[in-house]
Computed example of a mutant assay.
Amino acid sequence: MIASLLPAPAVTAELFHDPPGPHGLFPEEERVVAGAVGGRRREFASVRVCARRALGGLGLVAGPLLPGAGGAPRWPRGVVGSMTHCQGYRAAAVALGTDLLAIGCDAEPNAPLPSPGTLALVSLPQERVWLREFAARWPAVAWDRLLFSAKESVYKTWFPLTGRPLDFDEAVITPDPLAGTFRAELLVPGPVVDGVRISAFDGRWRTGGGLVVTAIGLRPVRPVTRARAALSVRPAAVRPGARPAPDRRPAPDGRPAHDGRPTHDHDGRPAHDGRPVPDVRPVRAGGRRGRSIRRPEDMMRDDPYDTDLISHAFPKGLAHILRYPPLQLAGADDEYGEPHIVRGID
């Protein structure tokens, strides 16, 4: 589940049950949970199985993964990551620090929070507005639990960058129920990375198998250089080699050319042998006819570096479309437990 929520540089691993046999902990890790109950020991060990598998995907051999300041795992040098566990699910995600600045992920049962008092503790007034609306329109999702999970992912992203705690009322969450995304606007000064202050985190969410999972993969801040700015700005003049626009001018005797049918297709190429082509326009998602857009393969063939054309047709980028399939919303089928209100990163 978690792999679909994070950008490509992240490597993930997940378990839906605890592996049999010994816990497989290092002696240093055993000492951390020496006085814990059996369930806590199992989840502590299982999530580290996921973490070591994920680190192996980066080509690294993991040693002990011990809690550090604030409970955050002490990852190998040059690695960022996050771990999460709840009833029936354990997961970990890691990446090189050169690819992502931070990762935050959290999994919860897809079931309501245990009490109105808990919701009042973790939510802001503006968040309770969309909670009521979304619960009425999409009841299969426990939106209050999704809000809590998103704030946990925000905390796990925030803490490694700042070393400071972040309260529930210091970030406001706004999810997109159809796109499976959410935005976390920080209500306190955000971390400064490479001279740029970060004021918001963008994440993704999904439900399935009785779970709601949220994740944030914070990409490095890349300042806009002159070269990049020059590439992203196109002059108004027609570029050399560009194809002409379709000729809609009437014939000399006043009659429309070819009985009013176009002589060029929609990417400006002439029809074969000058014959008219059907006026077929692309159909957007959902079956609605929209304005004509050029096919991505034609855009890339004409100018594979034309970022203006690509961003015009796909505002979130081609990689976004390929990486994130449509999300399926599932109903809750697990019993819920008490949320860990005491902020922990595991």
Score class of each variant (00 low, 15 high):
Glu29Met: 03
His264Ala: 14
Thr12Asn: 02
Gly203Asp: 12
Val221Asp: 08
Leu60Gly: 06
Phe159Ala: 10
Met1Phe: 06
Ala245Gln: 05
Gly117Ile: 00
Leu101Tyr: 04
Leu187Ile: 06
Pro240Tyr: 03
Ile310Cys: 07
Arg183Ala: 14
Asp302Glu: 15
Glu170Met: 08
Asp194Arg: 12
Val47His: 06
Val49Thr: 15
Asp106Ser: 09
Pro22Cys: 09
Phe168Glu: 03
Asn110Met: 10
Gly24Tyr: 02
Ser82Ile: 05
Ala285Val: 09
Asp302Thr: 04
Glu170Ser: 09
Leu218Asp: 12
Val79Ala: 06
Asp169Glu: 13
Glu185Phe: 00
Leu58Asn: 08
Glu185Gln: 15
Gly21Leu: 10
Ala107Asn: 10
Arg128Glu: 11
Gly208Lys: 01
Arg222Asp: 06
Pro19Leu: 15
His264Ser: 13
Arg77Ile: 05
Val280Phe: 09
Asp202Pro: 00
Ser149Gly: 09
Ala242Lys: 03
Arg301Phe: 00
Ala91Met: 08
Arg275Val: 00
Arg269Asn: 05
Val188Phe: 04
Arg291Cys: 01
Ile103Gly: 07
Leu5Cys: 11
Met299Asn: 05
Arg226Trp: 06
Pro235Phe: 02
Trp205Val: 08
Arg323Ser: 14
Ala135Asn: 11
Pro262Glu: 08
Tyr324Pro: 01
Ser4Asn: 11
Ala179Ile: 02
Asp308Pro: 00
Pro250Gly: 12
Asp253Phe: 07
Leu100Glu: 05
Arg294Asn: 03
Glu170Arg: 13
His340Met: 13
Ala51Met: 11
Ala330Val: 03
Ala184Leu: 03
Pro315Ala: 13
Phe16Leu: 15
Ala215Ser: 09
Gly117Phe: 00
Thr84Trp: 02
Glu170Phe: 05
Pro325Tyr: 01
Gly24Cys: 03
Leu6Cys: 03
Pro19Cys: 13
Leu101Thr: 15
Val79Leu: 08
Val79Gly: 07
Gly88His: 07
Pro125Met: 10
Asp169Phe: 02
Val277Gly: 11
Asp346Pro: 02
Thr263Ser: 15
Gly337Phe: 10
His340Tyr: 10
Arg137Leu: 11
Pro339Glu: 04
Asp333Leu: 14
Pro7Gly: 10
Ala237Gly: 11
Leu218Phe: 14
Asp247Trp: 03
His272Ile: 11
His258Ile: 04
Arg145Pro: 00
Leu131Gln: 04
Glu338Lys: 05
Leu25Arg: 03
His264Ile: 03
Asp267Arg: 01
Ala10His: 06
Ala8Phe: 03
Ser115Glu: 11
Phe159Pro: 07
Val280Met: 08
Val196Phe: 12
Arg77Ala: 14
Thr263Pro: 08
Phe44Ala: 07
Ala184Ser: 15
Ser149Met: 06
Gly38Cys: 03
